[in-house]
Simulated scan of single mutants.
Amino acid sequence: MTRLKMAVIGLGKMGLHMIQQAEQAELNGSIKLVAVCEAHEETLRNFADAHAEISAYSDYMQLLDEHEIDLLYIAVPPKFHYPVVMEALQRKIHVFCEKPLANSTEEAREMLEAAEQAGVVHAVHFSMPHEPSVLKLQELVEQRSIGAIRKIELILQFPQWPRAWQQNSWISSREQGGFILEVGIHWIHMIQHVFGPITEVSSEVLYPDNAEECEHEVQAVMKLEDGIRIQLNGIAHFAGKERVSMVVYGTEGTIALENWEELMMGQVGQPLAPVEVDESMGELPVLKRVIARIQGQPAKIYDFNDGYRAQLVLEALRNPEGNTSHISR
Rank of each mutant, 00 (worst) to 15 (best):
L287D: 01
I171H: 09
H122R: 01
I149K: 04
T105N: 13
A316T: 07
I294L: 07
Q143R: 09
P78D: 14
M111A: 10
I230K: 07
G269D: 13
P132R: 06
N305L: 09
F96R: 10
Q311S: 07
P78G: 13
E98H: 08
V85R: 00
E279C: 06
A102L: 03
E217C: 10
A75H: 10
Q20G: 12
A316L: 05
G266H: 06
A25S: 14
L89Q: 05
A273R: 08
M265K: 14
H237Y: 06
E321I: 01
K223T: 14
G15S: 11
M281G: 03
K241G: 15
R329C: 07
D209I: 12
E68S: 15
E276G: 15
E142T: 02
F238G: 07
M111K: 02
R150A: 07
I54E: 09
D59M: 12
A39Q: 10
S55W: 02
F179R: 04
G184D: 13
L33A: 11
D70I: 00
G253L: 09
V8I: 15
M281I: 00
V277T: 09
Q192E: 12
P320A: 01
P159Y: 05
E217L: 03
S173Y: 03
V313E: 02
Q157A: 10
A316Q: 01
S245H: 03
K79D: 08
E110N: 07
M190E: 14
R243Y: 08
Q167Y: 03
N233G: 10
V124L: 06
I188C: 11
A273Y: 05
R289P: 01
G147T: 02
L89C: 15
E42G: 12
G184Y: 11
Q117F: 04
D306N: 13
E252D: 15
M1V: 13
I191C: 08
E26W: 04
V277K: 03
W187D: 10
Y82E: 10
E213H: 10
K13C: 00
E200K: 02
I255T: 02
E98L: 03
S58Q: 03
W170T: 02
E212F: 06
E225M: 11
F80W: 14
E225T: 11
A25H: 07
L181D: 03
I235F: 04
Q192W: 15
V201K: 02
M246S: 01
I31K: 02
A123L: 04
K92I: 08
H94C: 13
F126P: 05
P285A: 06
V183Y: 14
G269L: 10
A7V: 01
I188N: 06
G269A: 12
M190P: 06
T324S: 00
M281S: 06
Y82F: 12
Q62V: 10
L154E: 07
C37V: 15
E98D: 14
A88N: 01
I155Y: 12
I74Y: 14
A236C: 02
L16S: 04
